[in-house]
Amino acid sequence: AASEHFMDVSAVDTLEGEATGTFMEVVNPNGDILFGLSDMEIYHCMTPEWLTKHLTLLKRAKYLVADLNLPKETLELLIALKMKHQIPLVLITVSVPKMVNMPASLDGVDLLIVKHDETEAFLNLAVKSEEDAEQAAIKWLSYGAHSVIVTKNDDTLVYVADNGETIRYKNPHDITNRYKWGANEAICAGLIYARQQGKSISQSLMAGFANGYYTTQSLSLVRSNLSTLQLEKDIEELAKVEKEYRV
């Protein structure tokens, strides 16, 4: 009911006896996460059969965005759908435990967005620096994705594409005391928004970086002042000092 003012929710399914996926973090006064609680059972209902019921809608999409909450076989069907109809597809990781849902092949995935700890667990390598993140991204490309972004908290972002293009951003400012809730989601949202608007990959990365940075200035999961106009202003301001962030 709250979201229908901002998006079309007419295709959202309500399942009797099931609850919306929920994740809660318990955080101490220093912003450290003590533990998390989740109820993710409903995602098991997002089967290939469920996805097939929505094929007509999906085939009309300008962009497909999915994360690893979905079962592996559902994601594999979505990739097949993308390849058949040539719809841009972004795949976003969720957590280390959910890496079990990573498709065996990423052929057809236009962009994979993955965090450093998930990369370390899945690829069995350390990601401590921007150089490590770049090498990890290159290894991810071997799974078939056209491009990869490896993030670390909200301060490091490394992009590598199969055409050899590499872009690295690092926030030079002290961010250690800021709460990180929502930063990765904000980065993904800003980046995908910019790509939909036809912006270049460097502009899109800056959009994601800006949205992630300013989200961490707020204690809300989604900052209250976020709008298309505000995001464009944020991108413009950060672009002025982009050289400080390129490494």
Rank of each mutant, 00 (worst) to 15 (best):
Y245G: 09
E236I: 13
N184S: 15
I42T: 13
T47F: 01
I92S: 08
K53G: 05
T52V: 14
V160S: 04
Y179F: 13
L77E: 15
R178G: 09
T216R: 11
N211K: 09
Y179A: 13
T216A: 15
M46V: 05
S10V: 05
K59V: 06
A80T: 13
L226Q: 04
L125A: 02
T151Y: 03
R178F: 14
M206N: 01
S3L: 15
F6L: 09
Q230C: 03
I138D: 04
L226H: 01
E120H: 00
I92A: 10
T228E: 08
L123W: 09
K115T: 08
N184K: 12
M206F: 06
K240H: 03
V12I: 04
T156E: 15
R246C: 10
T93F: 05
L229D: 06
A210N: 03
L125M: 10
I201C: 04
L58P: 01
E242H: 10
K62Y: 06
E41Y: 08
F209T: 05
M40L: 02
Q197F: 05
R168V: 08
L70V: 00
V9I: 03
I87S: 06
Q217Y: 10
V160I: 02
H44V: 11
M102N: 01
L89S: 02
A210W: 00
T93R: 08
E130N: 12
C188G: 02
Y63A: 07
A183K: 03
A104R: 07
N30I: 09
V65P: 06
G212I: 08
L51V: 12
V247E: 14
S142T: 15
I201V: 04
N28H: 02
I42L: 05
V12S: 09
K115P: 12
L37Y: 05
V109D: 08
A136V: 00
D234M: 10
I33R: 12
V247F: 12
L78I: 11
L106R: 01
G164C: 08
E118P: 03
E18N: 09
Y179V: 14
S224E: 14
V90D: 03
A183I: 00
P88T: 05
T216W: 10
H173V: 11
S227T: 05
A2Q: 12
A121P: 10
L205W: 01
K82Y: 10
K170F: 02
D67K: 03
W50N: 07
Y179P: 15
T215A: 11
P29D: 01
P97L: 00
L219V: 06
E25D: 11
T74F: 01
K240P: 07
G164W: 01
V241L: 12
N153G: 12
V247S: 13
E165K: 15
V127M: 07
K82C: 04
L111W: 13
I33Q: 15
L68T: 05
I92K: 14
